[in-house]
């Protein structure tokens, strides 16, 4: 995704001299060519995220369209007040880019896991929140953010995510993409969980269960029409995100469903427990531990289709999967 991002940004910078990339001394091997090619549109602010974000707001106030770039929590939580006051309050054209969304940097440990960012940033007024589902979406999201639409949070994975969309799709900011059609269960994913959602749908299709997959790349503004339409048709909604179950995609979809007039909808969030991880390992390993792997998601969606309104701890065969099931935990 970061490769798709920097490719898109390079094209944009060539077209529009206002495009400026400000990095917090991160992006080894990613930003070097951009820096060489566009020295007046590039800046390394040093390991100083508060100043990086404040000066990005200042650059934007002078007419630039600024992308700040760093890893995981550094361009967001470290300088959250600069994001809120300097960028959002001034409606500045600043795109805060975090690479390493979710558990992308798994083995690097807790400091490098971005697992509360969506919840926190979507609560900021004027902030658009985007977590593209694959490199194709990352490129489209970068272009949309570069149009000068005010503050944007762009949550990327890292490098090497697979292309989920194998043909061009009509990506539009704020509009969910229907990636698989199905009438039994709707699986709404955000960010790089999209591939897991698609694999789940394909596996369950073989069992005769029709899973609709929505790539909810834009979490704010949320495509409420798509959610309500899916709820009406399938009556079963599962959200999937590499993020805390608190306040992210699942929370946002729950807000829409609870206030909608659609009744008798089964709803399940799949995400990370609100805990600091005790496990060390790569993204795939940590996803498995937390029930975010394809097999676990298949089991969850199948169980919802089979009729259980809630998944109880004793019903579940995964040792830690239930910890990611908020309904079971809080019931």
């Amino acid at each position: 995704m970061r490769t798709a991002f920097i490719q898109a940004l390079t094209e944009l910078a060539a077209e529009d001299p206002r495009i400026t990339l400000v990095v917090g001394d991160l992006g080894f091997g990613v930003v070097t060519d951009f820096a060489k090619r566009f020295p007046k549109q590039y800046l390394n602010a040093g390991v100083a995220e508060q100043n990086m974000t404040g000066l990005a707001a200042g650059l934007a106030m002078a007419g630039k369209i600024v992308f700040t770039y760093s890893i995981a929590n550094f361009p967001t939580l470290r300088c959250l007040e600069q994001v809120r006051n300097d960028v959002c309050y001034h409606n500045a054209n600043v795109v805060v880019v975090a690479v390493g969304g979710g558990l992308s940097y798994g083995s690097l440990g807790m400091s490098h896991h971005a697992t509360e960012d969506i919840a926190i940033l979507r609560s900021l007024p004027r902030m658009t929140v985007v977590a593209p589902g694959d490199p194709f979406e990352a490129k489209a999201a970068t272009r949309a953010a570069a149009a000068g639409i005010g503050p944007v949070y762009l949550r990327l994975g890292r490098a090497g995510e697979p292309l989920v969309h194998n043909k061009p799709v009509p990506w539009r900011l704020g509009k969910a993409l229907t990636v698989r059609r199905g009438e039994d269960v709707t699986l709404i994913s955000t960010g790089a969980m999209l591939q897991t959602a698609v694999h789940t749908a394909d596996a369950l299709a073989a069992e005769g269960i029709g899973v609709e997959v929505l790539s909810m790349h834009t979490i704010k503004p949320l495509d409420t029409d798509a959610i309500i339409d899916a709820a009406r048709r399938t009556r079963r909604i599962v959200t999937l995100e590499e993020h805390s179950i608190l306040g992210g995609l699942g929370g946002a979809v729950a807000e829409v469903l609870c206030e909608s007039e659609v009744r008798n909808v089964r709803f399940q969030r799949i995400g990370l427990p609100s805990e600091f991880g005790k496990h060390i390992g790569k993204q795939e390993y940590l996803r498995r531990i937390h029930g975010l792997d394809v097999d676990s998601v298949i089991r969850c969606v199948r169980r919802m289709w089979e009729g259980g309104l809630r998944i109880h701890k004793d019903e579940h065969d995964g040792a830690t999967f239930d910890r990611a099931m908020p309904i079971a935990k809080s019931a």
Binding site: Q50, G58, M61, E81
Partner: peptide, 19 residues
């Protein structure tokens, strides 16, 4: 520029000056 939380003005000023 709106202010109130301390420590923000000089960073924004740096961005404006650099632009």
């Amino acid at each position: 520029v709106s202010s109130g939380s301390l420590g923000h003005g000089l960073g924004i000023a740096c961005g404006l000056a650099l632009a």
